[in-house]
Every structure is written in C-alpha cells, then in structure tokens.
Nucleic acid binder design. Structure first.
Lengths: 154, 154
DNA sequence: CCGATTATATCGCCTCACGATATTTATAGC
DNA sequence: GCTATAAATATCGTGAGGCGATATAATCGG
C-alpha cells in the first residue's frame, strides 16, 4: 500500500521525473565547477567539445556549432568570440567559401578539453548508471525497485 | 579497425560524452519550449515540480527549494517571487517558525504542472531509452553497438 | 550579372543568477 | 530571562549571456 503525497497525488511519475531533473542539475553543477576551475564557463567547454567531436568531413562552421549547441547563430558567434578571447579556439577562413569561418581548437584548448572530458567521463562512470536507472523507471514497461522506492517513500 | 577523428584522437569517450550532452540540450530545449507554451519559464516549472515532489514531512521552505534547485538562497527567493507573480504558487507563514515561508502550489499551478509533467514523461518515454543507452556506453564494462557506432563513424 | 539566399557579425535589450548586505526570528549559554 | 550568535528570508546593484533586429559580405540560380 502506498501513501500518496498530498502535493503529488494524481500526477504519475512525478517523483521519478523530479529525481531525474535533480540528478541533471547536480551533474550540470559539477560541470560548471569543473569548467570554471579550468578558467572557462561551462558553455565554453561545451563548444570546445562540440568542435572536437565534429566528424572529419563536417567543417566546424559557426552554423554547425550553433546547431549542435542549440543556439541562435548570433549567440554562437558571441560564444566563439568569448572562447577565442580565452585562447581556447581560433577562427580560420574557409578557402572554399569565404563567408564561412572554421573554428578549431588551439593546443591549449585541446589540453584543457582533454582534462575536462576525463573528469566528466569519470563523473559519469560513477553516477551515470544511477541516472540511467532513474530514466528506466520512466519507461513504459518499468516497475523496478527504484521506481517503487521513489513512489513509496511518502 | 576504427578510424580516428584527427580532432578527437587521444580523447577516450569524447564522442559518447558529446552525444550525451547534445541529447541533454535537446531535452532541455524541449522543456523550455513546453514551459513557455504554458506561459512560464523552464526554471519556474522546475520549481513547481520540486514543490510538488517534496515529501510530506519536509516543509517546502525557501532553503529546501534552493537546495533542490541547486541555487543560492537569494536566487531561490527571486525565483519564488517570479512564480508567485505568475500565480502558480503562494507563500504561507510557517506557524512553528516565523522566519520561514512555506511555498505551495495554487490550483492553477497544479493544473499547469500536471500538463507539463505529462508532456515531459511522454518525451522521456520516447527518448529516455536512447539517453540511457548513451550513458551506458560510458560505463566501465561497456562496448555496446552504440558505442562502437559512435567511435567508428569517423 | 543581378536578385535571392546563405554565413557571419554587430548592437541594444532583457532575463536571471550572484555577492553583499539587511532584517527578523530562533536558539544557546549564562 | 537576556544577550550573543546563528538561521531564514528578503533587497539591491552588478554582470554574464542569449536573443531579435539589423548589417555586411559571399555564393548561387536563372
């Protein structure tokens, strides 16, 4: 028999969803702290990561970065400005299409990125499984122990 | 045999981590759009969700909300101000401790929250499994098809 | 070779989180 | 019970960053 929270009664999966979002905020908070310990903002790290993860064939244009960062093009321009000022990336001119700037990591940028990726992978090796488990409790055919726990503890 | 991306070479798990963050951004972007379609900001929805998910015994004080939202106390105060102005929550005085305000959802707030939770649960029923799978590729003992795909396609 | 489209850049605006500080209430030590 | 300290909330000025509107330059289609 499960006691319903008066506040949450009648909203299915509220506890699991709230837990997932709390886990995300905790992860993002870690990410921000790690980035700023390296002297850059969290978004700047994300931009660098997108650049490094862009497949070989795909040029790292402002438009492409904006798309992967889910930002307006002008915001991507401004973000690149800031990361460039921090010395982590530089713009090159695309010789095929002079409208484009190609953004690439500097050696310093690669070094910092490697550190940050390592730290984040480490974090997710520790906490990723728990996040995945919370996500699974929201799947159609799921009544795991975790879900029962989140539902039952009120 | 896997071809290494010149940009990503020597950074293990870069592709999987970047993919995970892109999935998160996509989800958060959906969340923002859904919230604003209901006339509130994404953070305001999160606050409401935290309030609703607060266990019965635990009073929904500003301090508690700040902790779950991962915000400074003053920022939580300001967030509650905005959500109160939007008519989604109201403050009550704690009669045991007059320093505290207890924050609770209004009927309108409950209605909107229910809609948003439903939409988000629906989203995660569709996309949650994929996110969980990406997370799993970052686990210690993981060389799934997904991981091979992300590593191999460059 | 010119009108339409695409890519990037610039600028002013607005939201929101923060640090510093203030105010009120509770609590502990005497 | 009275005072020093701590805790909870609130206020205010500041700054970062994303966005819409607009501008400029380069490419492309007919």
């Amino acid at each position: 028999m499960k006691e319903e929270n008066a506040r949450s009664s009648a909203i299915p999966h509220l506890a699991e969803l709230a837990e997932f979002r709390y886990q995300l905020r905790t992860f993002l908070s870690f990410s921000e702290a790690a980035s700023e310990a390296c002297g850059i903002a969290a978004q700047q790290y994300q931009l660098m990561q997108v650049i490094a993860a862009t497949p070989e064939g795909r040029p790292a244009t402002i438009s492409h970065l904006a798309e992967r960062m889910i930002l307006r093009h002008n915001s991507a321009v401004e973000l690149v400005d800031r990361v460039e000022k921090a010395g982590m990336v530089r713009r090159r001119n695309d010789e095929q299409d002079l409208r484009r700037s190609l953004v690439e990591l500097t050696p310093e940028g690669k070094k910092i990125l490697q550190q940050l990726v390592t730290q984040h992978v480490q974090y997710l090796k520790t906490h990723g499984e728990e996040i995945a488990r919370t996500l699974r409790t929201l799947q159609p055919a799921s009544q795991t122990e975790k879900a029962k726990d989140l539902d039952g503890r009120r």
